[in-house]
Simulated scan of single mutants.
Amino acid sequence: MSVRHSLLALLERGPMHGYQLRAAFEESTGATWPLNIGQVYTTLSRLERDGLVRPLPENDGGQQPYEITDAGRTQLGSWFATPISRADRPRDELSIKLALAITTPGVDVAAVLQTQRTATMRALQEYTRLKARDPEPRPADLAWRLVLDAMIFQAEAELRWLDHCETSLVRHDLTRPVPSATGTPSPAPEHTEVTA
């Protein structure tokens, strides 16, 4: 997620100070991604340094509002016009975790998969409950609904991928922990299978 471009998009609506930007961001995304106020002000300082925003006089409450500059609008337009590359997204920690689990002695990969599947299923159920609360959202709620839909689709895709991983483990007979350097598998942590 680009905090930099998110703040520029919010400032395109009109001048705002840091706390207003954080509130507007959380309202637009349904508070899906927490935004630390320190991160907002650090990003505003960098945007100002780069000539993409400019500070306005302090308001009566002593807060410093900012407005977007023409250069900021140009960069924002470019961001909206450019697709997000898979390489631009953060590393997929789950993929890395499973790759390391398969090659690390003593790790019960099946347990790692089951733990993740349970957590992902719980998240999917929560997202689905949130969506069911408001089957016909108002146009003002469309931004939040689209974010929620993206989270549902990502959780569903993750569950399908976890099923694929489990099938691959069975096919390659990797359902048991890899032996340690001494030749004996380390004891696998006990886990309870939870079905959703």
Results as ranks from 00 to 15, higher is better:
E48R: 01
A111D: 07
V112N: 02
P135R: 06
K131E: 13
R91P: 09
T118Q: 07
L52K: 01
V53G: 03
A99W: 05
A132R: 09
I84G: 11
R49P: 03
A71L: 00
T118I: 15
P135A: 13
T104Q: 09
R89K: 10
Q64D: 14
D149A: 11
V109L: 02
N59K: 07
Q64H: 11
A140K: 04
L56S: 07
A123R: 08
E48S: 01
L146T: 11
R73I: 00
V53M: 00
Q64K: 10
E58N: 15
A99I: 13
L113P: 02
I84V: 14
R122Q: 13
K97Y: 15
L159N: 02
R160Y: 11
L52H: 06
I152D: 12
E93G: 08
P90K: 05
G72F: 06
P55K: 01
Q114G: 00
L146Q: 12
R86Q: 09
T120C: 08
A119R: 13
Q114T: 12
E67F: 03
S95D: 11
T128A: 10
T82N: 06
R117T: 15
G106E: 01
C165K: 07
A71W: 00
V112P: 03
I96H: 11
Q75C: 11
E126D: 11
A101T: 08
A155E: 04
T104D: 07
W79V: 01
K131V: 05
R49L: 05
T82F: 05
L148R: 06
A81L: 12
E156K: 12
K97T: 11
I68T: 00
T74D: 12
A101I: 06
Q125Y: 04
K131M: 08
L142V: 10
L159D: 01
V53S: 02
D60K: 02
L169C: 04
G51C: 04
G51T: 03
T120H: 01
Q125G: 07
F80L: 15
L113R: 12
L142W: 08
L47E: 01
Y66K: 03
P55V: 01
Q75D: 13
R138A: 11
A132E: 14
L146C: 09
D163E: 08
L100I: 15
D108I: 00
I96F: 05
P57W: 12
E67T: 09
Q154M: 13
R145K: 15
R122M: 04
A71M: 00
S85Y: 09
I152V: 15
L130M: 14
Y66D: 07
R117P: 04
N59E: 09
L94A: 14
L169E: 02
R129Q: 14
